[in-house]
Amino acid sequence: MINNSKTGMTLIVKTITRLTVGLILLFGIYIILHGHVSPGGGFAGGVIVALSFVHLMLAFGKDVAVAKVSKNMASNLESIGAMMFLLIALSGFLGGSFFLNVLAKGSPFDLLSAGTIPLSNIAIGIKVGVGLFAIFLALVVLERAK
């Protein structure tokens, strides 16, 4: 399906996309995971992850992107991200209050530090990335349903 020349853009765009789309996805995941030690975080990283799938869809046509992330999977992941964030919020009650940072703080500048903040970043990253992609998918795929 990827080498089908009828859907999507020209061969040049497809070749460049094949080389870059993985790097874009990886960069988004890096931004999400390092949200507490460097600029970035769940929102910014989630947008980059969503853009990598949008890139795939623009270059190869909608079928390839839908094969990677279907609409049901998108809405499920979106809900899972929201529930994860809410669970992290509720886990603050283990220490006494809503959104309390209950895990160990660790030492600054470590990847595993800052308690629940990296977990919140991952939850928001999943939610934002999949949510934005779901909006794009809905606008592209569901447009002709009349």
Partner: peptide
Amino acid sequence: TGSVNIVTAVILDFRAYDTL
């Protein structure tokens, strides 16, 4: 908070309710 990125510390710890 243990987070060196102060923006993240504010939006996900001090003001996490807003982020929700």
